[in-house]
Amino acid sequence: MLVHASGAITGAIVEQALRKLRLRDLETLRILDKTRSFARTSEAVALSQPALSKWLRELESALGIALFERTTRRVAPTAYGEALLEFVGRVLAEMQNVGPTLEALRTGTGRPVSLGCLPNMAQLIVPGTLGRLVENGHSIRLNVQEGSFTSLLTQVERRELDVLVCHQNATVLSSGLEVVPLYRDEISVVCGPKHPLMRRKTVTWQDAAEFPWIAPPSGTAFRNALNREFAEAGVAPPRVMLETLSKETSALIAQRLPCLYITSFKNWRLADRRGEKVHRLPLRITTIPEAVCAAFCKPAGFSVGAVIEAMKQIDFEVAGVSGYG
């Protein structure tokens, strides 16, 4: 006896019944929905009408619901049937993409993995990731976007981005995303080669407030963290001459003007090794977690999984600070 809207339909019963379905069964359901005829469906799937009717009755009995209404004139899906057929259509559509997807992975012409990075993290992550992908035998392309934490996190949650590289803060840990630790880094205060503070062994936030700043845009996590450091030191926020998240722009301006800005230790180390004249002061942002992670929605597809694995294999020692190794 079938259970309808007034009865109890448990998820366990439905799940158990669906596990027994084969791809051929899903195709049969779709054809029956399309033709609305047992005669035409039985012909299309090379199955006799009695066998087709028996198969459908057994499926409905296992599920505990009626999938199709049968009369002498028509066959039409019930509300339950329409709901199931919607998922059947998705599954069959995805299955049709398996062959082209595997071939695209082999030739390197598949959809790129979209990677969201906080400003200036891409130069630490992308080269090593691409190198490891090649070493691992994967022809996977990356599409890299930089932006604010809030914007990028929302895009990953909506599956508009595949992976987010960010600081491992409470928000990302409570987001429901899968989180994989990558490396540790701290946010430091830096200046140009002629700044008066670079000659001092001890620098306070009061000292830093006496000079103009290139600061992250208002409302960003980095700007809030910077303001918090001044507030906790009992110092009024400094004069901001420019708001930007660009390390390159900040560094160029700091070569000419006695200003300050923040950047990660790893980025400072890379700049120092390239011969850029940027001096690191003994001040750091303490409220930004040092842990940097990759966050993504589960389950991860093959390409996303390969990119995550490549990130975990990066030798972050090249940037001067050990990872999780």
Results as ranks from 00 to 15, higher is better:
187 I>L: 02
188 S>R: 12
188 S>E: 04
189 V>A: 08
191 C>S: 04
191 C>P: 06
192 G>E: 02
195 H>C: 01
195 H>M: 06
196 P>I: 06
197 L>G: 02
197 L>T: 05
200 R>C: 10
201 K>L: 14
201 K>I: 06
201 K>E: 15
202 T>L: 13
202 T>D: 13
203 V>I: 12
204 T>P: 00
204 T>V: 05
205 W>C: 08
209 A>M: 09
209 A>L: 04
210 E>R: 14
210 E>C: 07
211 F>Y: 15
213 W>D: 00
215 A>C: 11
216 P>C: 09
220 T>L: 05
222 F>H: 12
223 R>P: 00
223 R>W: 04
223 R>E: 08
226 L>T: 15
226 L>V: 12
228 R>F: 13
228 R>Q: 15
228 R>N: 13
231 A>K: 13
233 A>S: 10
234 G>F: 00
235 V>G: 09
238 P>F: 06
240 V>A: 13
240 V>Q: 04
244 T>E: 04
247 K>R: 12
249 T>K: 14
250 S>L: 08
250 S>R: 08
251 A>K: 08
252 L>W: 00
253 I>N: 08
254 A>W: 03
257 L>E: 14
257 L>V: 08
260 L>P: 01
260 L>A: 07
263 T>D: 06
263 T>M: 09
268 W>Q: 07
269 R>N: 15
273 R>Q: 14
274 R>M: 14
274 R>V: 00
279 H>M: 07
279 H>L: 04
280 R>V: 11
